[in-house]
Amino acid sequence: MTDERPLAGRIALVTGATRGIGRAIAHKLAKDGAIVGVLGRNEAQGTAVVREIEAAQGKAFFRRLDVCDFKATQSIVEDTVARLGRLDILIANAGIGTIGPVETSDPEDWRAMMEVNYLGTAHSVKAALKPMLAQGRGDIVAIASSAGVTGYPDWSGYCASKWAVMGFMECLGREMVSRGIRVSTVCPGSVDTPFWDILNVDLHPAGSDSRKGMVTADDVAEVVMLQLRLPPGVLIKNSLIFPTNEWH
């Protein structure tokens, strides 16, 4: 009996997949039939995501990864291809955030955000390109942010890292034209995820009305899936999404 799920047999890797948006994307990929590599730094959370996917009859595996380490990222991609034969989908989602006015910000926080948000994306993409180009097909989706297209007070370092992601993906997309690799970015506004719980400023406490008005991680994941489910010849270059109570 043929598996008619839209991504049946595809091999996917998702960075930052142990919680939030990455976790939601991993679940939807598996539901659509993909074998999902759940990548992240927290082993307990990552293995829990794998158990959730398997309990729902999906297929997944966990690999511990710090995306700041290019060699480690490359090794995971190579191991995935060696074991499973190919790599069809990369979701570059790992990210961190620290906010505050420029005059009082710590440059080390800026450095950390550039290393994880920008270089982590670049590392993941570069590692994934080799097998994708060899097979002549693949999807690369980066989760950026509305902060990648708009400047917000107190968010200078975070915005800079996400603008870097957008610039990188713009160049990558132009390089991949007619080479079989679809390149997309998704730029969410406010999303109700654990991001706010570990942010250095208590802007939107868990359970607050402001959190309830945000889009969910599942909403963002569904936008990602919209791209992946499209026919191979169709591309959504960038999706800028907000909850209906935002416009900026």
Rank of each mutant, 00 (worst) to 15 (best):
F168R: 09
R182G: 07
R41V: 03
A128N: 13
A44M: 14
F242T: 04
A82G: 10
M1N: 12
S190A: 14
T104W: 11
M113L: 08
L226Y: 14
A26E: 02
V116C: 07
T150Y: 12
E222Y: 03
G138N: 08
I91S: 07
I96Y: 05
A24W: 08
L119E: 13
D154G: 01
D154T: 15
V183S: 05
T2G: 00
G100D: 10
L133K: 14
R83M: 10
A217V: 01
D209I: 10
K71M: 11
V81T: 08
V149M: 08
I198T: 14
F168P: 00
V141M: 10
I198A: 08
W110G: 03
A12L: 09
R63C: 10
C187V: 04
I11C: 03
D88T: 06
K237E: 09
M225G: 00
G189I: 04
K212Y: 00
K237T: 00
L13E: 09
E43N: 06
L65K: 07
E4G: 01
C171Y: 13
R83A: 15
A34C: 02
A147L: 06
Q74C: 07
I53W: 05
D109T: 15
E54Q: 12
C187P: 04
S145Y: 11
L199C: 08
V183Y: 07
G207Q: 06
A60Y: 07
I198S: 13
K162Q: 02
Y118R: 10
E108R: 15
L84P: 13
L7K: 12
A44R: 12
D154L: 11
G16M: 05
T121H: 03
D209Y: 15
S190C: 08
L129M: 13
K59I: 01
R23F: 08
G20D: 00
R211E: 01
A128I: 01
P6R: 05
W196E: 02
L39T: 02
R63K: 15
S208M: 14
S184L: 02
H27E: 09
A134W: 00
Q45R: 13
S146M: 15
V177P: 06
G95Q: 01
I241Q: 08
V81A: 04
A147N: 13
R211V: 08
E103Q: 13
R179Q: 14
G58Y: 01
R83T: 14
S210R: 15
A60G: 02
A164Y: 13
G180C: 12
A94D: 02
V201E: 13
I99M: 10
I143P: 02
R64K: 12
L87W: 04
I89A: 05
T98Q: 15
I99E: 15
G120K: 04
P188Q: 06
E108H: 08
R64G: 11
D32W: 03
S178E: 14
R10H: 10
T80Q: 07
E108T: 09
A24F: 04
L90A: 11
L133Y: 09
A60I: 00
A12D: 09
V215H: 01
F61H: 01
N93Q: 03
V14P: 06
L203V: 13
W155G: 11
S190H: 04
A128H: 05
S105M: 15
V125N: 06
T121N: 11
G207D: 03
G173N: 06
M169Q: 08
A94V: 06
A56N: 10
A56E: 12
V215S: 12
L39E: 03
A56W: 04
S178D: 15
R51G: 01
C68Y: 00
G40V: 00
A221G: 15
V36G: 03
V50K: 05
A127D: 11
